[in-house]
Design a protein around this nucleic acid. Structure first.
Length: 642
RNA sequence: GCUACUGUGGCUCAAUGGUAGAGCAGCUCACUCGUAAUGAGCAGGUUGUCAGUUCGAUUCUGACCAGUAGCUCCA
């Protein structure tokens, strides 16, 4: 007998080898009908799996993240069976659950079209209606290879061969389709009621561009049709927040065929950008940074010395000056280092924090470009910190705190990732280990959670990255903290230590916004163009009711201008409703409608674009001096919500 | 760069193997108006570029360019 404990602290005994489904049923028939799987000793399992030893069991439903993962992973198998029925020559690669659905990678001569997605969707519905139970079984490695090799399932064979010797190899059978899979899966697929296949895309086998490109189909499924519709509605709504669309509508920036990946900032975009820069300077000054600026074009020899030539040449632009080869900087660090080497430093000077809003150019692959999020010319809010090895941890923590402060100002959520030594790295193993340990300890001491990306570091050092999400949940790396022992070595950087000897400083490269361009993209999507007052390109729109109010409304507009606000006086001969509609669509935070009443009473009805519980614009009345005080307060506090 | 798809006036979209039309935006005129669209008129396009097929291409074919989704890469 084995003992099973449940989240409420209760426990029961079962026969060894009991199915999780039996356990669910023993507690309650209703539960057995509703649960999708279970978390057993912290590991997610399907209900068709068995228990052989004492365990703590928590059953999960669709609402739980584990439940969704099981549900979507199973949906991927249903799709695979449908594809096998419709396109018998197909070879299967992998088909996992992702954040909001699933995909499966297929290799077939047939090129999938959008119409095919509908056919596959129909077939999936048929399969679900057939009422299969997903059964799990195990095979030995030899049995598995004997089974899949003759079928020509090269990807499955590849997967089996790469599994560790002692790994249990499990399979799931759905109708006539047997798939190599660790699981977990639903036992009963009839729960997959609402199905939508979303897109087709290419994806390399094992994510390596040297391998064959497979066809990937993305889809999502729900237990309830209503939830699927809600999800599709969310995607539609998110499209409206796309920074490329809002950027055009609000006249913030533009892209042109003449300069792919090189954004053009319009005057309204520049207001946001300049406000962002002032904010950034203020925060960095307070955090003990000094600002520098280094040239955009530097001699090629510098890039040989820095290692960029060997590790980053493919992404660099080059040019010639008087028969000498020059490179356009893809990173700011070598420039900073030249300033560093301009004189001698003492340990007493450390830590030194040099910040630079540096415009860098990188030849990104054409297919990777994406609005402001991924461009070929961007301004990094870079900084290079120079210190002794003993200062590393505190400095890392300081940067993390600055990130918290700056992202917090905008109310952004973010997650962190730690990336370790890559294959093409420079430098000694021990240095890397030490550097990685410093980063891990800094995160650990601050109690931060992070995702570990083995082998994903920069060529000169390990890094911590900060990722922010866009409107549809894609995350973009913004902040980064990179430890570097290599550049100081390569450039023979020194300082004088307490013993009066020359010593090697440690260098930290870091950004917080990441790039002003990307950060603005995130900012636009986060606020859907309804910016906090302090960064709004136009803060107040003054709207006279008719021409005879113009003289008075102009005075009001002028006073607001003098008070330092960005104001537009809309004197066009249009109806009030029309002007309000326009100001609303242009997402101007405050509107002041001025007519007879205002002229007589000197009190203004102010309309704000944020909405109340009833979905109406917030509206309030106040005199001009009070309004100016209120707006000043809102700007200086950098309030997110008015 | 790779796979698939897309490319018609500033924006959103329509149409056709016989050289393009609407709405919004713009401009002009009238209206002087109280909280999300006043009316009328005008102007605006060598249908992404270059070739090919054809009596004739914007429509068919090819190459290139740009964009979209994903992969790879990355701030």
């Amino acid at each position: 007998m084995i003992k099973v404990t449940f989240p409420d602290g209760s426990a029961r005994e079962y026969e060894k080898g009991v199915q999780l489904y039996e356990i669910a049923r023993s507690i309650s028939e209703g539960l057995a009908r509703n649960v999708l799987g279970a978390v057993v000793n912290g590991e997610t399992r399907g209900l068709q799996e068995t228990l052989t030893e004492n365990a703590s069991v928590r059953f999960v439903r669709f609402e739980d993240p584990e439940g969704k993962a099981i549900f979507w992973h199973t949906s991927a198998h249903i799709m695979a069976l449908a594809v096998q029925r419709l396109y018998p020559d197909v070879r299967f690669a992998i088909g996992p659950a992702i954040d909001d659905g699933f995909y499966y990678d297929f290799d077939t001569e047939h090129r999938f079209s959008p119409e095919d997605l509908e056919r596959i969707e129909e077939e999936m519905k048929k399969i679900v209606a057939e009422g299969h139970l997903l059964e799990r079984f195990e095979m030995s490695r030899e049995e598995a290879l004997d089974r899949f090799r003759p079928m020509g399932e090269v990807y499955k064979v590849d997967l089996i061969e790469s599994l560790p010797e002692d790994e249990v190899i499990s399979f799931y059978q759905l109708g006539e389709f047997i798939d190599l899979c660790r699981g977990p899966h639903l036992k009963d697929i009839s729960k997959v009621k609402a199905i939508k296949l979303l897109s087709i895309a290419g994806a390399y086998w094992r994510g390596d561009e040297k391998n064959k490109m497979l066809q990937r189909i993305y889809g999502t499924t729900y237990e309830k049709k209503k939830d699927l519709e809600a999800h599709l509605h969310f995607l539609e709504e998110a499209k409206k927040r796309d920074h490329r669309k809002i950027g055009r509508e609000m006249d913030l920036f533009s892209m042109h065929e003449e300069g792919p990946g090189f954004p053009f900032f319009h005057s309204k975009g520049m207001i946001i950008r300049n406000e962002l820069e002032s904010f950034w300077r203020e925060k960095h000054k307070a955090a003990g940074y000094d600002e520098i600026r280094t040239p955009m074009i530097l001699n090629e020899s510098l890039w040989h010395r820095s290692g960029h030539w060997d590790h980053y040449k493919e992404n660099m632009y080059f040019t010639k000056i008087d028969d000498e080869e020059y490179a356009i900087k893809p990173m700011n660090c070598p420039g900073s280092i030249l300033i560093y080497k301009n004189r001698m430093y003492s340990y007493r000077d450390f830590p030194m924090r040099w910040a630079e809003l540096g415009l860098v150019h990188r030849h990104e692959l054409s297919g990777a470009l994406h609005g402001l999020m991924r461009v070929r010319a961007f301004t990094q809010d870079d900084a290079h910190l120079f210190m002794t090895a003993g200062m590393i941890k505190e400095e890392i923590k300081g940067v993390i705190r600055l990130c918290d402060d700056i992202y917090g100002t905008f109310g952004f959520n973010y997650h962190m990732e730690l990336s370790t030594r890559p294959e093409n790295s420079m430098g000694e193993r021990e240095q890397w280990d030490f550097a990685e340990l410093q980063l891990k300890e800094a995160l650990g001491e601050m109690g931060r959670e992070y995702i570990l990306n083995e082998g994903d570091g920069a060529f000169y050092g390990p890094k911590i990255d900060f990722h922010l999400a866009d409107a549809i949940g894609r995350t973009w790396q913004c902040g980064t903290i990179q430890l570097d022992f290599q550049m100081p070595e390569r450039f023979d950087m020194t300082y004088i230590n307490e013993q009066g000897e020359k010593a090697r400083p440690v260098m930290v490269h870091r950004t917080i916004l990441g790039s002003l361009e990307r950060f603005m993209g995130i900012l636009i999507e986060e606020f859907a163009g309804k910016f906090p007052l302090w960064i709004a390109p136009e803060q107040v729109r003054v709207i006279p009711v008719s021409d005879r109010h113009h003289a008075f409304s102009k005075k009001v507009a002028d006073q607001l201008l003098e008070a330092g606000f960005r104001v537009r006086h809309d004197q066009r001969s249009e109806k009030v409703g029309y002007k309000i509609r326009q100001a609303q669509m242009e997402k101007v935070p405050y509107m002041l409608v001025i007519g007879d009443k205002e002229m007589d009473e000197g009190v203004f009805a102010v309309r704000h674009f944020s909405v109340d519980e009833k979905g109406k614009n917030k509206q309030f009345e106040m005199g001009l001096p009070e309004l100016i005080d209120k707006l000043r307060e809102e700007v200086s506090s950098r309030a997110i919500q008015a």
